[in-house]
């Protein structure tokens, strides 16, 4: 009794033989190389993705730090301003003190110089007065001597005349 539907085991085996060759051939020639390429590319993209996420993480950390710095910047600015103002005030006060000292020193020196000048002038004036007095005295003496001499002479002349 034949197998219904004209089923032939020999032909079935021939088909299976064909199929085995095809499956093996396509696997080695097409499937495996393409899959390998896809996997390699996937690995590359995953690596790129990992690097990118790492960079993103770093960038986020930097951003966080920058944000923190920005957040503290106002406080720091105020703090620094206060510090600068204090320093400025301190410096102003020091300068003022120094200027006052300098002014006092200058005034003191000026007073001293003026005193010396006055003393010198006074000394000089005294000397001049003395000289003038001497001169005046001398003049007076000279004038009185000359008058006396003249009077003497006149008296002498008169005496001679009389004589």
């Amino acid at each position: 009794m034949g197998i219904p539907l004209n089923i032939d085991w020999q032909q079935i085996l021939l088909h299976i033989f064909n199929l085995i060759i095809l499956v093996g051939g396509l696997y080695f020639l097409l499937y495996q190389p393409v899959k390998k390429f896809i996997e390699k590319r996937e690995a590359l993209y995953q690596e790129m993705d990992r690097e990118a996420s790492e960079k993103l993480k770093n960038a986020q950390e930097l951003e966080k730090k920058a944000q923190e710095l920005l957040d503290h910047a106002d406080d720091e600015i105020t703090e620094r301003r206060i510090k600068a103002e204090a320093e400025l005030n301190e410096r102003d006060a020091a300068q003022l003190l120094s200027v006052e000292k300098e002014a006092k020193r200058i005034i003191a020196e000026a007073q001293k110089a003026a005193e010396e000048e006055r003393r010198s002038i006074l000394d000089h004036t005294d000397k001049e007065i003395l000289i003038m007095t001497k001169k005046a005295a001398a003049q007076m003496v000279h004038t009185s001597t000359e008058e006396a001499y003249r009077q003497f002479l006149e008296a002498a002349e008169r005496d001679e005349g009389h004589a």
């Binding site: 032939d8 060759i21 051939g25 396509l26």
Partner: peptide
Amino acid sequence: LEVNPAVISSLVVVGILLAAALLIR
């Protein structure tokens, strides 16, 4: 052998596919 035409078709298809796969490879 005397076979059904489908066996020949199968051989031709397998041949064409393998040749194409080889060229692509």
